[in-house]
Amino acid sequence: MRKILVGVKRVVDYNVRVRVKPDGSGVALEGVKMSVNPFDEIALEEALRIKERGEAAEVVAVSIGTDEAQQQLRTALAMGADRAILVKVTEAVDPLVASRVLTEIAKRENADLVILGKQAIDDDAAQTAPMVAALWGRPQATFASKIAINGGTAIVTREVDAGLETIEVDLPAVFSADLRLNEPRYVKLPDIMKAKKKPLDVVEFASLGVTADVGLKTVFVEPPKPRAKGIVVKDVAELVDALKKKGLV
């Protein structure tokens, strides 16, 4: 295999508890810590391991975002990606638009494999991998927890509601990484220095000929309804008593 494309999304760090803006226009992102989407880190780690096993020649990290997303691409380069592409947009795009962009890049790069996170932890949409596979006309293996490349095919184990499903797909294909696919490596300082010299191309969104408007409108953003405050019971007897009163046990 020649080339693996990996998606890298800049998202609010998973430790941050986001706050909804009082005017309902969105969530407050000012001064909030941003990171690589954790599932994308797993996707990248898997691509790097495939390359390190000698089964791929190059790993390319792609992000769709503002200039600030270059930080996350530098992290991807420090982890070991060979080069990076930033498709520059001014605001967040719908997963369908992101999928059109990634499909266009996959075609231009002649990628053999695209690995994405199974979902981004900001919009939690979990759409992009199957959408890219559809638009590109390729197989998909979502929620991957194990990937084995065998020349022109791959055997992928998927985490599904019933347990673990294994499928075989022809390459090129699109995979989405689940939590237990691997444990991403830590970035070391010398790698961060090296990453500064690796190529990072910036591509203007407009140059890709992708339609940005998909017609989906965000009307309003609100915080979830809070749960009623509970009580602390002093011992097991009180707990069991309370549950019996509610008819729960």
């Binding site: 609010v12 508890r17 986001v18 909804v20 969105g26 969530v27 932890i121 900001d122 919009d123 939690d124 017609g215 989906l216 409108k217 965000t218 009307v219 309003f220 953003v221 609100e222 915080p223 979830p224």
Partner: peptide, 17 residues
């Protein structure tokens, strides 16, 4: 729900599709 359920978004899709 978005952001692990911490922001609830109301979305409107086009009626002609």
């Amino acid at each position: 729900p978005t952001y692990a359920g911490n922001a609830i978004v109301t979305l409107e899709a086009p009626a002609d599709r």
